[in-house]
Design a protein around this nucleic acid. Structure first.
Length: 235
DNA sequence: TCATTAAATTGTT
DNA sequence: AACAATTTAATGA
């Protein structure tokens, strides 16, 4: 298993197309953006790779550029509890980066992913200089809080249909992940890992959701047609 | 560009 | 968990 240190050994600057996926860059002034881009690095994560683990000190603020990541924590029983998935445009670790603490959760790549990293020092520099950046981080923290509360409920749900529905709603959260459109490219296998169900059951649940016109199932992904229904509807 | 083949993903038992 | 059907991606003429 790779450490986050070795993961960032083969890193490189970002291409313009990759920079376009980073939502908070648009909120910065020219000189702030220049400094951020200069520090930004990307690296490729293979399925199963850990970007960070509980107990590790924070060196980078991470964001998904391409692929799909999973945020989870191990509870006392040794059981893994998944909080949320992180699609392209999603950033995480700001809570720990703020306090320069150690990670309280694991971030793992579900499929081959491109991960961008901003050094904590630059992260703090942006906090000290950019109002727009502060607004982004504040919004992010607020959304994350709501997500963690929701995750507790989702994990206790017995009905797989609702479980899948709520998890999808979390993935599509437009505030946390502004870079994402209405189409989510995620295989049913990946979704199964994310939600903690078998692929068969996820497949069944997705078809139920599709029957209620909340989503449309497509090859290699799905399209959300009614996000509100996913959040509230009882299937 | 099109046809053929391989790989990935879905649907079903 | 295994299988068949379907869709996409890759290859080469």
């Amino acid at each position: 298993m790779k450490s986050d240190a070795s993961l960032f050994q083969r890193r490189r600057p970002l291409t313009p197309a990759e920079l376009d996926v980073i939502p908070w860059l648009k909120l910065l002034s020219l000189d702030e953006r220049e400094r951020a881009i200069e520090d930004l690095q990307v690296t490729e994560a293979q399925p199963g790779d850990y970007l960070c683990r509980t107990g590790r000190p924070v060196t980078y603020w991470f964001g998904a550029v391409d692929g799909l990541l999973k945020m989870s924590a191990d509870n006392a029983d040794g059981q893994t509890m998944t909080f949320t998935g992180i699609p392209p445009g999603g950033w995480f670790g700001e809570g720990t980066a703020l306090k320069r603490e150690i990670y309280r959760y694991n971030i793992q790549a579900l499929r081959k992913s491109l991960v961008a990293g901003l050094h904590v020092d630059t992260f703090h520099w942006l906090l000290d200089h950019s109002i727009g950046f502060n607004r982004f981080v504040m919004n992010q923290l607020n959304e994350r809080l709501g997500q963690f509360i929701a995750a507790r409920e989702i994990d206790r749900m017995t009905n797989p249909n609702i479980r899948v529905a709520r998890s999808l709603a979390a993935l599509f959260n437009p505030v946390l992940y502004p870079g994402l459109g209405v189409v989510l490219r995620i295989t049913q296998q990946e979704l199964a890992y994310l939600v903690g169900l078998s692929r068969q059951r996820v497949n069944e649940a997705l078809n139920t959701l599709a029957a209620h016109n909340a989503i449309r199932v497509e090859y290699g992904g799905l399209r959300v047609t009614d996000l509100q229904a996913l959040r509230s509807h009882h299937f």
